[in-house]
Amino acid sequence: MSALGHLSTPVTPEPVAARKGGRRRTAYLLLLPGGLWLILFFVVPLVSLVAASLYDPNGSIEAGFRMTWSFHNYVDAIADYAVPLGRSLWYSLLTTAFCLLLGFPLAYAIAFKAGRWKNLLLALVIAPFFTSFLIRTLSWKLLLGDNGFVVDALRTVHILGSDGRLLATTAAVVTGLTYNFLPFMVLPLYASLEKIDHRLIEAGSDLYASAFTTFRTVTFPLAMPGVVAGTLLTFIPAAGDYINAQLLGTPKQRMIGNDIQRLFAAGAYPTAAALSVTLMAAITVLVLFYVRRAGTEELV
């Protein structure tokens, strides 16, 4: 119908339409590489992960795994691993909170007070990335070691008992996580703070707001996109991390990643997959809830 209408009323100049169609095609062509990448490396693995979580739990590598739609895998996995699952979410929440507490003043100082030191300070924030994640975590083992100088000093001033230790405690694991993910918090915070129009803050003091009120009502709300991005970039990877728990913790600090890795190696694919999907779902729900509450207009 509309095609016929087009033919009979040649009002729309032909070249414009052609250009529009061409532009649209270009847009889709530009989406193609990214789309293919996502299908190949995100959708396919995700589907196969969900499938694996529903395989017959009595299968083995020797006999193979059949698809039996065993939704019960989820019930079993959650019943057996509720503790490490909850612990992972709790640790990553703590990590995110500490990163925010440490990262905000740092990002604020770099954005507003650093002057000509700005670039140097930013480089220092990124500097740890020049060493591997594993090496950095292992160095914490040296620092916090039972006979290292940190523990010795803390024992001398009686903060730690004569038998107290830092390594292999919850504190060590959360410290390690905080340290490893801090740059992911600082950088987006800095990007947000940097963009703030200084005249708005000046306006605050012009209107007789105290420094704290200006911060609370002007600076912080304007930095919100950075806070949201930073907390997400910290929380999500921290929940799946298992290196810190492995190297700095004890069995009592095991996170869900440790269990998934071991189950996978043991050939218990369905349980391992069910736990992975559960973790993903839990994170997605938490993040969606959080993003709805915090608002992300400027994020996307």
Partner: peptide, 10 residues
């Protein structure tokens, strides 16, 4: 796809 999934005996 899910129904067609499975890991053959090794």
């Amino acid at each position: 796809t899910l129904a067609g999934c499975g890991i053959p005996a090794a």
